[in-house]
Amino acid sequence: MKKIINVAILFAAAFILTPVLAAEPKYNAFYVFGDSLSDTGNVLAITKLQKIDPAIPPSESPHQTYYQGRFSNGPVAVEYLWRQLDDNASLTPFLSKPKIPSTGGVSFAFGGSTSGYLNQMPGGLYVPGVLGQIELYRKVLNGKTANSRALYAVWTGANDYLMGRTDQPSEVVTNISKAIQTLYSLGARNFLIPNLPDLGLTPMVQVNGGGADFMALTQSHNAQLAQALKQLTQRLRGIQIFYVDLFTLSQNLLSDDKKFMLIPPALEVLAPGTGATDCFITDPSICPDVDVSAELPPPHLVFWDLMHPTTFIHKLYGDAMLESLKAKK
């Protein structure tokens, strides 16, 4: 069974070409497409529906190793962003409210998803990839035009590489471009697009000795993504693309190891020797009860498990995303 390695590395900074600080933008809705970095409870909902016990990610006692269906110990980056954009509003998982409201925040993201239409995650569960998630959004629109005042986040790619789906960035970037173009054709105009942080820094990748290869793969992906976004900006009239550069800040992490630590993951500190760092992949029934609200002493631990960042890091991502939206050409 292939292991999912959903990655996020520390800090984030955001930019678009020739940025100038502007007033905080106002969006009346926020729709998110992606993987476990943006899933606010969709995988939890579908595994509960299938009566998988414990549901994934294990979020209830006696297996409370994750926070309320997030693949972390707290809210994720896009939640932190939306709270700042809409006065502490929530980002609802799509499966809990399949009829999309005209305003508000909805996450279509599924943990374990790739950039395509459909893929299998560990345990045999099939989840919609980003292109599949957009088809779900198209379906619930039911022929209506997408909200042009909404913000649309597309954050994907890591699982394509880390789950061994492909080693060709052109395939993944093509899917991201198609996702943006499809949303644009439906009426979307405002896009938040993060690149990939250095996948080679992920604890599981480091343990397996693949750091250099995955770093090179990340660099190739990001270069092709930046070029594709530039072309879309030039070609699609009225589009706004806010690009978030996670790779640069993940590199800056390497010179700031007194404040942040990649290893060990927080779960290894809180539940040593229990196998908690990858229990949701190997055997969810062995996931232990963990105090997900526990404060850990500095330096800040970047990862909650072998793959997913802590909510502290997600908060930094959310702040950086907000800064990207305050910039304009």
Rank of each mutant, 00 (worst) to 15 (best):
V244C: 10
T248F: 02
L267H: 00
D278I: 07
P284W: 01
L253P: 03
D278N: 02
L249M: 11
L262K: 05
V269M: 12
G273A: 02
L249F: 14
A276P: 01
T282P: 05
L262Y: 13
V244A: 02
L267T: 05
T274L: 15
S250A: 13
K258M: 03
S255V: 15
A276V: 06
D257I: 15
P264T: 03
F260P: 02
S255D: 10
L249Y: 11
T274P: 12
D257H: 14
C279Y: 05
P272S: 00
A271C: 15
N252D: 09
D283R: 00
D283G: 07
G275C: 05
L249P: 02
F260H: 00
Y243H: 15
D283Q: 01
P265S: 12
L253E: 00
A266W: 04
S250G: 13
V244D: 05
A276R: 00
P284T: 08
P265K: 03
G275Q: 00
L267Q: 04
V269I: 15
P284V: 02
L267P: 00
T282W: 00
E268R: 04
N252Q: 11
V244T: 04
P272Y: 00
L253V: 09
D283K: 14
C279I: 10
K259Y: 14
M261H: 12
M261N: 15
L267W: 04
A266E: 01
Q251L: 10
E268I: 05
L270Q: 03
G275Y: 02
F247H: 06
P264M: 08
Q251H: 14
L249A: 11
G273T: 10
G275M: 06
E268K: 05
L262E: 07
P265N: 10
V269Y: 11
L253Q: 07
D245P: 12
Q251N: 14
E268S: 05
D256N: 14
L253R: 08
G275S: 03
L246W: 00
L253D: 06
S250P: 10
T277E: 12
A271W: 08
V269A: 09
K258P: 14
M261K: 09
S255Q: 15
T248K: 08
L262H: 05
A266V: 03
L262S: 09
P264L: 11
K259G: 12
C279T: 01
K258Q: 14
T277L: 10
S255I: 14
Y243D: 04
M261R: 15
F280T: 00
G275W: 06
A271Y: 06
T282S: 13
D278F: 07
V269W: 01
G273P: 08
E268P: 05
V244K: 02
A276E: 03
G275I: 02
G275P: 08
L254K: 06
S250V: 12
F280H: 09
I263H: 07
T274F: 10
